[in-house]
Write a protein that binds this DNA or RNA. Sequence first.
DNA 1: CATGGGATTGACT
DNA 2: GTCAATCCCATGC
Length: 195
Amino acid sequence: MGPEFYDRPVVLVAQDLVGCVLAHAGTSGVIVETEAYHQSEPAAHSFGGRTERNRIIFGPPGRTYVYRSYGIHALFNVSAMRDGIGAGVLVRALEPVDGVDLMRARRGLQRELDLCSGPGKLTQALDIELKDNNQDLLAGPVTIAPRPPGWEQVELVSGPRIGITRAMDLPWRFCARGNRNVSKPWPPGLLDGAG
DNA sequence: CATGGGATTGACT
DNA sequence: GTCAATCCCATGC
C-alpha cells in the first residue's frame, strides 16, 4: 500500500481500508470496521482547527493518530488527505489473524469474538498505545497491508458513526458484511447475504 | 493552574 | 437498561 492510498478523500480511504491487514507486535487482523472523520463536520477532533492533540490528522497522510479515550482506552486512527486537511479514519474492529493467543493474553479473555470487536479492544490486543502516535505506517512498527486473498471483493454495510453526539446523520461507518467481529450495535443488514 | 468532558468498555440491575 | 473507571487535553480564569 503506497503513500498515495491515504492521499485521497477520507471516506474513500475508510471504505478501502476494510479488508486490509493491520499488524503490530506479533499480532495482526483484517480490518472489518472503520469510521471516517473530516474537519468539515462537528464530530471530528479536527473540527474547529489544529490543536496540539489533533495536529497529526492535519499533517501528512498515512501516519498513526492514537489518542486516549475516557481515560482508559487508546483509539487507533490513520491520517488521510493531504497535509493541511484535518481528516482521519478510526479503525473500530478486526478479525484476528496472527498471534491470537498473544491477543488472548493481552486481553485476559478467551473468546475470539471478544478480542478485537471494538476500537479500545483492538488496541489492547495489538499492544498499540500512545507511544505509537505519529508514526509512519509505511515504516512501521504499526503497518497496514493490502487486502489478502478472499478479501478483495469484501461487501460494505454503511451506517451512522458510533458514540458521537454530533453529525450523526452522516453514514460514515463502514463494516464488512457478514462479519461478526464488527462492534455492536451492528448496522441493519450486517448479516444479510453473507452471514 | 483548575476544571470538564470524551470517536469506550465491562460489570451490574 | 444504567453506571463508574480514569487520563489527556482544551478551555477558561
